[in-house]
Simulated scan of single mutants.
Amino acid sequence: MSDPHPTITIDLILDRHTTKEVLQAILHAILFHRLFGTVKPQTFEVLDVTMPGVSDPEMETLVNDKVEAFWRGVENGASKRGQITVTFSEKRPKKSWFQVYMGEEDVPWEQWIINAELRQPKSGHDRQQFLNTLGATLTKAVQTMVTHTLSDKGRSAVPPITNAAGISPFPLRIAVTVGGVEVA
């Protein structure tokens, strides 16, 4: 049996003022490193950290919708913790027990998990310390993305590209979970 797909985890502690901006930047950075079509780059400046992004209306809408879903989930729910999962898959023939072709199935080849927790600093000093820590966390997250995507394991996880149409030759899914429940 082959190795399961790589899973990369990024842990974030956010406050109300930075949540949307940070999550958008992190998602864009992941997409920037894992979309293989012609990508028009853009950058995001978050807490003095420059993060790469994708300038594509469809991807921007997808990212904004998922960040909004996360925000609504933590604002309206009892839990202030959530998770955004980005899964990259490939289409493979699905066969039945008797090797009869039964259509196609999505088989994940890589997954990124963003664990996010919402906290509120109590004082101005706490807030400054919080923002400094978050900035360092973002820098580390970008380093993790670059290190993984350039590593042998990161490169070998990518299946052969057989369809060069569009910005992503592979199916991609972004799921948002807050308090253990998936939100739309």
Results as ranks from 00 to 15, higher is better:
108 P>E: 15
37 G>S: 08
135 G>W: 06
97 W>V: 02
49 V>E: 02
54 V>R: 03
126 D>C: 04
10 I>H: 00
107 V>M: 07
138 L>C: 06
13 I>W: 00
5 H>S: 09
157 A>D: 03
3 D>H: 13
90 E>Q: 15
113 I>A: 00
26 I>P: 02
96 S>P: 05
159 P>Q: 05
142 V>H: 14
117 E>R: 10
149 T>F: 05
16 R>T: 04
32 F>D: 08
167 I>H: 03
61 T>F: 08
73 G>M: 06
135 G>R: 12
166 G>V: 10
117 E>G: 00
48 D>R: 15
102 M>S: 12
109 W>S: 05
121 P>D: 12
38 T>Y: 06
11 D>A: 12
47 L>I: 09
4 P>F: 12
32 F>H: 12
64 N>T: 13
38 T>D: 14
75 E>P: 00
167 I>F: 07
180 G>N: 03
146 V>C: 09
49 V>M: 02
139 T>I: 01
160 P>G: 04
63 V>T: 08
156 S>M: 09
24 Q>M: 08
117 E>Q: 02
142 V>L: 15
32 F>S: 11
74 V>A: 01
88 F>A: 08
149 T>P: 01
113 I>V: 06
19 T>E: 09
125 H>D: 12
68 E>M: 14
94 K>I: 03
172 L>H: 07
97 W>I: 00
56 D>C: 12
151 S>D: 04
130 F>K: 09
69 A>L: 02
47 L>K: 11
53 G>Y: 02
104 E>S: 05
14 L>V: 15
78 A>M: 09
157 A>H: 05
77 G>L: 07
165 A>D: 12
148 H>L: 01
129 Q>G: 11
175 A>M: 08
127 R>D: 11
10 I>Y: 01
135 G>Y: 10
73 G>I: 03
127 R>I: 08
166 G>P: 07
86 V>G: 05
109 W>T: 08
65 D>Q: 07
37 G>M: 05
55 S>Y: 13
88 F>N: 11
162 T>S: 03
103 G>P: 10
150 L>R: 10
38 T>Q: 12
68 E>T: 12
77 G>M: 10
118 L>M: 10
134 L>S: 01
83 Q>W: 06
53 G>I: 10
98 F>A: 12
7 T>Q: 14
73 G>V: 06
119 R>G: 07
1 M>F: 15
131 L>T: 10
97 W>C: 05
7 T>W: 02
20 K>R: 15
60 E>Q: 15
34 R>V: 07
92 R>E: 09
20 K>A: 11
23 L>W: 00
113 I>K: 05
114 I>S: 02
92 R>A: 05
57 P>S: 06
111 Q>D: 07
156 S>A: 13
36 F>V: 01
22 V>R: 02
133 T>L: 04
74 V>R: 01
99 Q>E: 14
